[in-house]
Write a protein that binds this DNA or RNA. Structure first.
Lengths: 160, 160
DNA sequence: GGCAAAAGGTTTCCAATGCAACCATTTGCC
DNA sequence: GGCAAATGGTTGCATTGGAAACCTTTTGCC
């Protein structure tokens, strides 16, 4: 007997809904208080963590596409929160790092955001938090496995 | 000692990222094969489950806002997948239910979607699946608790 | 009964998002 | 060395999505 579909017990729906609610709630900190969009916020975090990166690396690390990164960088740059210089090895590549202002801003936001996350996770035991992250890891891994063989990134460049 | 922020271990990011990947992957079924948007798909599922509902109830059950529901309904209605009639109790209210065509379509998609979900969840033991849903429930609950007292829905309609 | 406020839905408008076309540079191959 | 293809990043354009204004009907109050 096959079970039937109810949104309340349907993982794609539940996951989407949870993610949405988390975003809306969290964005009160970095969006409303500090005027950052989600992509801008992710770029900020990533540069704070890694120092200097190429735009393409930021793309990798943030799960944003290159258009989003480009626009986020433009916005942050206008506000003087990051500097970009072009690589001497490859003059197409843009090297990005936070300015002092950017670092300062990040260090002001970071504890607020971490505190918010702690508040969210507070009802879960540390072990349960571990389980949660592990489950997410495993599901993401599984999604990659499920990707059908002939995907977009496959037959790259054969016929003209 | 306060921990520092890294996206890989930051729940909002991980959750968003997972939800996005799930949506993209799943939408190959109902979007590409059957031409349904996510809101349309949710409305379809909900009406299949509950029979006849008012638009406002659909809004509740799907976590969509009323604009999305309105547009989804318009689209489904154009394709003849649902019927709407106005309530005799309240002529503003629209009563929605699937047409036969809509039911048929749903019954064709449902098993595919459930099979896909099963494939996604396959690496998790049943007990782990249970844990996953429970964790999601608890986080959603927590988010509601965290909502500051004077929220948007509060002082509704006082001054002109 | 009549008028102000609220509620159900739809439409309008603007910002965010994503795809595709686009420049500029670099790589690879002959 | 030179030309075709590939790569890094940006810009334009069409679509999506959400907030607010809107219309209609209903409710509540005097």
């Amino acid at each position: 007997m096959s079970q039937s579909l109810a949104l309340a017990r349907f993982l794609p729906y539940r996951c989407n809904s949870l993610a949405r609610k988390i975003s809306v709630s969290l964005s009160r900190i970095y969006a409303e208080k500090y005027g950052l969009s989600i992509p801008q916020w992710r770029v900020l975090v990533t540069l704070a963590e890694y120092g200097e990166l190429q735009a393409s690396q930021v793309t990798e690390l943030t799960s944003l596409d290159k258009v989003q990164v480009s626009r986020a960088v433009a916005g942050l740059s206008e506000r003087g929160l990051l500097r970009r210089r072009s690589s001497e090895r490859d003059s197409r590549a843009a090297l990005l790092c936070l300015s002092d202002t950017g670092q300062t801003l990040f260090h002001r936001i970071e504890p607020e955001v971490l505190a918010w996350e702690q508040a969210l996770l507070a009802p879960l035991e540390p072990a349960e938090q571990e389980v949660l992250f592990t489950l997410i890891d495993r599901l993401e891994l599984r999604l990659q496995e499920m990707r059908p063989v002939g995907d977009a990134t496959t037959g790259a460049g054969r016929s003209p």
